[in-house]
Amino acid sequence: MKLLRLAWQLSLQEFLAYKTTSILTFILATAFFSVEVITGFVYFTMGNQLNGWHQTDYLLLVTTISNIVYLYNIFFIIGHENLSNKILTGALDYDLIRPVNSYWYLVMNRIDIPSIINLAISGGFSVILIRHETLNIYSIGLYLIAIGLGVGFIFLMNQIAISLNFWIDGFSALGGIIENATNLFSRPMPIFPQVIQIIFTFVFPILLVTNLPVMVFKNSNVIFYLGYLAILEILLFIVSKLMWKYGSQHYLSAN
């Protein structure tokens, strides 16, 4: 909690110092979110269903994906961007010697304030759309767990990709692949070919990450998918911790 308070204070100072940039970031993110919502209305102008998905389901999908991305951005995006640069330039010295867990400190030492505002907008839309689903405490709980797992997957995959910079220069370009993949698969699962569904549900489950929260309200097998994703993320967390441990030992300082 002390780390988060410090991160908030520093981030607020930076936000006030670079107000124009922060406001432009918010405006652009809002514009892209609006395009996604408008696209949903366009898709369903000719009918109420698309491969078993109703317009409300689709709009809930795109707004929920926005929630996942904004949550990741709030806590981790700035830290990950800075971490990649620090590894490549050998500037991790002062961070590694601090009396805190360097794994978490380096990725949570800043908060992306514009994303908080974006999350409030997309989250508000999600609440309105969820009211059209069959609701109970159980389904809402599973929906929130699915969102948490989505944030965790994006964080862990980015953490692993960035940690590769300890050994191989040039892997910083991988930092945006997960976000691009999230955008690419931000569509209902049934519209993809069967082979694509299998690969991106069980091998690299980005399609599961984007669709799982809405599947809570549509699919009775959701517990299996939640369990599968949770176990996979535990394994990814172990891998990311090992990569950080041995990577920081392999780290070469510029000093």
Rank of each mutant, 00 (worst) to 15 (best):
I116R: 03
A146R: 04
G47K: 09
G124H: 11
I196V: 12
Q197F: 01
T25G: 15
P190E: 11
A254K: 12
V69G: 01
G152A: 02
L232W: 01
M46R: 10
S122E: 09
V239T: 15
L12G: 03
I130P: 06
H132V: 03
T89G: 04
P205M: 07
N255A: 15
A254R: 07
N180P: 01
P99L: 12
V37A: 02
V216D: 03
Y138G: 03
T201V: 06
D93V: 05
F32G: 14
K86L: 08
F125Y: 12
I87F: 01
D57C: 07
S84F: 04
T182C: 08
L229T: 04
L60W: 07
K218V: 02
A181V: 12
S122C: 12
L149K: 01
V239G: 04
V69L: 08
L96K: 02
E36C: 00
R131I: 10
I113H: 09
Q194K: 12
N211H: 06
P190H: 05
L71Y: 07
F44M: 05
P205K: 11
I68R: 00
D57H: 13
L60Q: 06
R110S: 14
D57V: 04
I238R: 12
L3T: 14
Q55T: 14
L88C: 05
I196K: 03
M1N: 07
I74A: 13
S163N: 14
